[in-house]
Simulated assay, not measured.
Amino acid sequence: MATSSRAKVCLVACGSFNPITNMHLRLFELAKDTLHQTGRFEVVGGIVSPVNDAYGKKGLISGEHRLKMCKLATASSDWIRVVDWEVEQKAWTPTRKTMEHYENTLNSQAGSTVSLKLLCGGDLLESFAVPDLWAVDDMDKLTGHFGLVVVTRAGSNPEKFIHESDALYKNRSNIMIAREWISNEISSTEIRRAIRRQSSVRYLIPDPVLEYIKANDLYQV
């Protein structure tokens, strides 16, 4: 199938990125491969969208530092960019509103229609089952209008989870599963713990990000 006949897609990853790790970057590459291999999509861009400081997650450092680390991590990419829109807001923005903003902005700039898909790990998919965590309308908009690309590890069973969730099952055709067969358990929480304990995290995060953390004495407390 010719590339020009494929639907243009931009992948959006929303999260703390506290700090951004090599696994975060791998999500983009895995999702891009998965979409291209269907023959139906052309990934034309990727957006890293760090959450606002008002999200209030324990241990969340300032958006200024998280933005800088994300930009350092993606500097060598020719298709992934960091957008500061969420960080610059006065309050935390629900994921649905963030996706709607990027959709409107992107398509007002693009010469053709680009659809957005929310890029996430299996843990976010499973969070849809947590009572009262997601507004029903938001969940429906994210899975129905936008769609998800879920990167999951070998041994997990997202298809079973989708089957058991009426909300997800309704929009199952718009949820794509990208499997990571190369075992990788990199966790930002574990990265922060290792840094506090003065253990090496080299090769778990990009070198420029590690240098920035050291230079700014981050995650020590």
Rank of each mutant, 00 (worst) to 15 (best):
P94I: 09
A13E: 06
L30P: 04
I191A: 09
I162E: 01
L27Y: 07
K160G: 10
W85Y: 15
T38K: 09
N107C: 06
N104L: 12
K8R: 14
I186N: 04
H145P: 00
K57H: 04
I205S: 13
T93V: 15
G59R: 02
L27H: 03
T113H: 12
V44W: 01
N22T: 08
L116V: 02
S108E: 12
V151T: 08
G144L: 07
D53Y: 00
V48C: 02
S76L: 09
P94V: 08
L27W: 00
S108Q: 12
L218T: 05
P19F: 07
V51H: 00
V149H: 04
Y102A: 00
A13W: 00
T143Q: 04
V221H: 10
D132N: 14
V151Y: 03
G122R: 02
F146A: 04
G147C: 05
N157Y: 07
H145G: 01
I186Q: 06
R153G: 05
V130W: 04
W134V: 06
S108Y: 02
F28R: 03
M23S: 01
N184I: 13
S4M: 14
K90Q: 11
S115F: 11
S188D: 03
K214R: 15
T105Y: 09
A215H: 12
R197I: 00
V150F: 01
R192E: 13
V150A: 00
R96I: 04
D123Y: 10
I205A: 14
Y219C: 11
L116N: 02
K214F: 11
C10N: 05
A7C: 07
A194K: 15
V87G: 01
L204I: 12
G144N: 13
I186M: 10
D33P: 00
S108D: 11
C10D: 03
Q220L: 15
A129S: 15
N171W: 09
F17M: 02
L72M: 13
L25T: 01
Y169S: 15
L218G: 01
I20N: 06
